[in-house]
């Protein structure tokens, strides 16, 4: 086989692999949706509520024994009850979002390089904190850095483009409606605005950690529900 023909063979092989990957991804996405549908189903909710109720009792009993088995337990700082835990959990009228900690990062007015820096820091943040699910809102379509890491991203038309074609005073209403719809859909617990180099520093120096994990200053526990 010539060197050139070899390249053709490699290209064909890559195409084949990509094709298989695509099929696998579609299959995985379909399974994901089936699972979500199952979780949202009435039967699952009832079952889940029963299990939660039983676990709640169990937790309560275990807490009574805490002095004896304290070092076995990872959950529950002083004063944090399971009820408080539930109160912080976003609900969409069902259990769909339970346990999800969507953090909305509004990354505004950035070019691709700025965005890359910020997303990289968010990536580190996510590695440090459990259950942080970033959702980005951006005003640029150069959002490869976000997509490359697989984070969901939503684009809003920036004012500078809007006012080329529409009355600028209508932009405020547009942004309000778009953000409201996103909040309704994703139910973020926290919204963080990233706007320029200073926000990179805030990410880097852990200032934002304290917003996502308020208990950080008083305990070495990492339960996000507190």
């Amino acid at each position: 086989m010539s060197r050139t023909e070899d390249r053709f063979a490699i290209a064909r092989a890559e195409e084949e692999l990509r094709s298989q990957l695509k099929v696998e991804k579609a299959r995985s996405a379909a399974l994901e949706r089936d699972l979500e549908a199952l979780r949202s189903s009435e039967a699952f909710r009832i079952g889940h509520a029963l299990v939660e109720g039983l676990l709640g009792r169990l937790r309560w009993n275990v807490r009574a024994l805490r002095p004896a088995i304290g070092h076995w337990l990872r959950r529950g700082a002083p004063g944090a009850s399971s009820q408080e835990s539930v109160a912080h959990t976003p609900t969409r009228g069902d259990v769909e979002l339970e346990g999800q900690n969507v953090v909305l990062f509004i990354a505004w007015g950035m070019d691709e390089a700025d965005l890359e820096q910020h997303v990289e820091r968010v990536n580190r943040l996510q590695a440090m904190l459990i259950d942080v699910q970033p959702l980005f809102v951006v005003d640029t379509t150069a959002f490869d850095p976000i997509r490359e890491r697989g984070y969901p991203v939503e684009y809003l038309i920036p004012l500078v483009e809007w006012r080329e074609r529409r009355p600028p005073q209508e932009w405020g209403a547009y942004v309000t409606q778009r953000i409201s719809a996103l909040r309704e859909e994703h139910r973020p617990r926290t919204v963080i605005v990233l706007d320029g180099p200073s926000s990179v520093t805030a990410l880097e120096q852990g200032v934002i950690n304290s917003i996502l994990l308020p208990g950080l200053g008083e305990t070495d526990d990492n339960d996000l529900d507190r």
Binding site: A26, P152, V153, E154, Y155, I157, E161, W162, R165, R166
Partner: peptide
């Protein structure tokens, strides 16, 4: 043109 982006996962079958 004024543009809006549809997130990829919305275009998946199903």
């Amino acid at each position: 043109l004024l543009c809006e982006v549809i997130p990829d996962d919305y275009l998946a079958a199903g």
